[in-house]
Each structure stands twice: as C-alpha cells, then as structure tokens.
Design a protein around this nucleic acid. Structure first.
Lengths: 210, 210
DNA sequence: GTCTATACAACGATAGAC
DNA sequence: GTCTATCGTTGTATAGAC
C-alpha cells in the first residue's frame, strides 16, 4: 500500500467533493457539473486535475483506503486488547455514518461494481480484502487469547461483521434511520463475539474517517 | 399491500428486464436504450408502457415486494418452527443471490436512495420495514417458545440479520465471491440466534425470488 | 402498440486563448 | 491552472404516422 503521489491543494478539494458525491449519489449518480458547483471551478478545470472520471474515482478510493489503513494502525497503537480493537473498529463506522449519513464510499461502489471502470473496481476489492484480513487477524488473536468465544471460524465472523456494518448503512439510508449503524454495530459485537468477561467498554473515542 | 393493476404481457417483459438492470447496474446505471436492446422494442414503445423512468422503477419495487410478501406467506405455511422459518428466509437470499449474483433490487436502490424519485424511494422504505417487522415477529415468537436465546432485543436481532444479508450481497459483489451471502447467512443464524437444540437443518428447499 | 423522427438537456471530454 | 467555446454522444421524453 504505497503513499499517493503529490496532490495539489486544488486537486484535494476536488477529491473531497468527489468523495462526498460518491457517498451520497454513487459513481453513476454524479457528474463533473455537480462537482463544478461544489468546488467553484469550471468543468474543463476539473478535467485538468483528473482527465477521466475513472482517474477521479480511482483516486478517491485509493485515498480513502490509505486513510483507513492509517486509522487501523492508530487503533492497534491505542488499544491493546482484541475486544477493544474490534470495538474501536466498529466505532469508526458508527461515527463516520452517524455524523453525516453518508455511505462508506467503497460500500456504495461495491453495489455499483458491475458498471465501474476496472481501476475503480479493483480499488474497491482491495479495500474489502484489507478490512476482512485485518478483522480476521484481530478476531483470531482474541479467540486464541481467550478474550471471547466464536460460534464460527474467524474468517466467517470477520465477513459477518463487515457485511453487517456495510449493510447497515444501506438499510439505514433506505429507512432514513440515523442510528442503524450504531444499533447493528453493537448487536454484532454482542452476537458475533461472545465476550467472556462482562465488563462494559468505556473511554470510547470519537474517530471518524473522512 | 394491494395487488398490482393488470399488466400486459409486454409490460411484464419490460419489468423483468428493468429489474435485472436495476439489480446489476442500479437505477442511475441503466437507460431506456439498454432496456430497448434487452426487450427488442424501440425506446418510444417502452415509454408507452412506462411513461417516466420513475413509473418503471416504482413498479419494479412494488412487484418485487408483492412477490416477497407471497414468499414469506409460503414460508409460514410450509414451516412451523421459528428456527426453520428463519432458515428458509435466509435461504431466500442465498438462493436468489447465489443463482445470478444479482443484488436485491431494494438493496441496490437503498444505496442510491439519495438520488431516487420519491415514489421509488418510498417503495424501498416499505420493503425494508416489511422485512424487519416480519423478522422481528418470528424472532420474538422463537424466543418466547424457547427455541433459541437472543443476546439482543428481537428488533436489534432482526436488523442485524437483515443488514448482514443485504450487506453480504454488496461485499460479495465487490469481492467477486459468489458464496458470500451463503457464508454470512449461516454465520448470522449461528451467531444471532443461539439455537438451543443442536439438531441439523435438513430438507432445505430451493426457493428463489425473481 | 409499435414505429420513425426529433426535441432538448446533460453527459464526458477536448481545443486553444489567457 | 483556469477559462470560453464547443464537440460528439447519450440521456429522458414527446409528436405523430401506421
């Protein structure tokens, strides 16, 4: 996972707007015209920074994945226990969705995968695989250390947890229910990981991904 | 939930094609031109059956919901136990996605909700609410009868199960993993419902929704 | 009910001046 | 790096003949 090449301040503003539009409208649901209104540049200026829509989409996904990787490293450095790390991971989704009701960009793009340019689609796949392997590793560690018991294999538990979080955003949006991700997140932790000690989790930090 | 008005055989073929396009490409990802190629009619002929794209989208959602209602009644009439009914419900998702890798139309539209015409969006909300209330009722019954124990309230368990199934399609598509829904479905049943007796489920029927 | 023809806007994208 | 101007294509939708 290498670092992005240098991106100019203007290009960053374009990326920020594009990400919001992808989260709200989807890749097929926004245009350079929409972007133009948000950023305050004319369409050809946008093409100067991202010649094809495909470039823009792929860069949004790559930047989001990089930020996610950093956030998970931060979690590893902040929390020691597997249970606390999973809780912090779930909080990432709760805080991100709860603040804005915007979908995970890769969740939206995953639904649209069939129609996406190949580079964008590949980025989404990489994001999903990274999340699943991180979750599986943490869950495996928690099971081995006896922090919690599983009713499934770690990879199945990871997939269930991840699918539930991504699905909660889709369902929450359709229901117009802001609290859906929080409800699913907490229920998933209770259900997927049978935590052995019953101590409550406190000191929850607010760390959303933009 | 009233029955649809009469729909001509040609209009039915248009609806079938439109549903597949929504499942694969999303509402913003298909056009009357795409539809024209699939059905073998010219664009104006399509507009004769469904004047606005909004009419087409709303009718697809309403018909899908009606079929889903019928399938759930069928499940109630076929299986007695709450556990078997939940299993049959999950099988509905497994079979539907597994056969074609097409998303649940309402899952796709839920992601796109922000950009949808009001009628279409309302139909998606109704579909979600219907599914959640059905699941909650069955789960409540299963808990009261002692078939399984919950770690959450029935409404949280229902939301978790539903979000996991819808999310599994999105994630499965992004990963190009055909078995994602089946894996999530089985893991969710194991995790969400702590089944008391350990007897295996047999005689699983294949009942997919088109 | 289906067609040809067409309106009119929006789309992604480029040329070339500044 | 941003702009005006514009290209060619596709989008939803309508008029009117058959």
């Amino acid at each position: 996972m290498k670092q992005s090449a240098f991106i100019s301040p203007t290009a960053l503003r374009v990326l920020d707007a594009a990400q919001i539009l992808i989260q709200n409208n989807g890749y097929n649901g926004f245009s350079y015209e929409d972007l133009s209104k948000m950023v305050g540049l004319r369409k050809p200026s946008l093409h100067h920074h991202f010649p094809k829509k495909e470039d823009l989409g792929a860069t949004v996904v790559e930047r989001y994945t990089e930020r996610f990787v950093l956030a998970l490293h931060e979690i590893e450095n902040t929390y020691v226990g597997a249970k606390e790390q999973i809780q912090a991971y779930v909080d990432l989704f709760i805080d991100t969705y709860g603040a804005t009701q915007r979908l995970c960009p890769c969740g939206m793009l995953g639904a649209e995968a069939e129609t996406l340019p190949e580079r964008v689609r590949a980025g989404v796949t990489a994001f999903f695989e990274f999340n699943l392997s991180w979750l599986e590793a943490v869950i495996t560690r928690g099971e081995k250390s006896g922090t919690f018991t599983l009713r499934d294999s770690p990879d199945q538990a990871a997939l269930l947890l991840f699918a539930a979080l991504e699905g909660a955003m889709v369902v929450g949006r359709g229901l117009n229910r802001r609290t859906a991700v929080a409800a699913v997140g907490q229920a998933a932790i209770l259900s997927v990981l049978t935590v052995k000690s019953t101590q409550s989790l406190q000191g929850r930090r607010n760390v959303s991904i933009e």
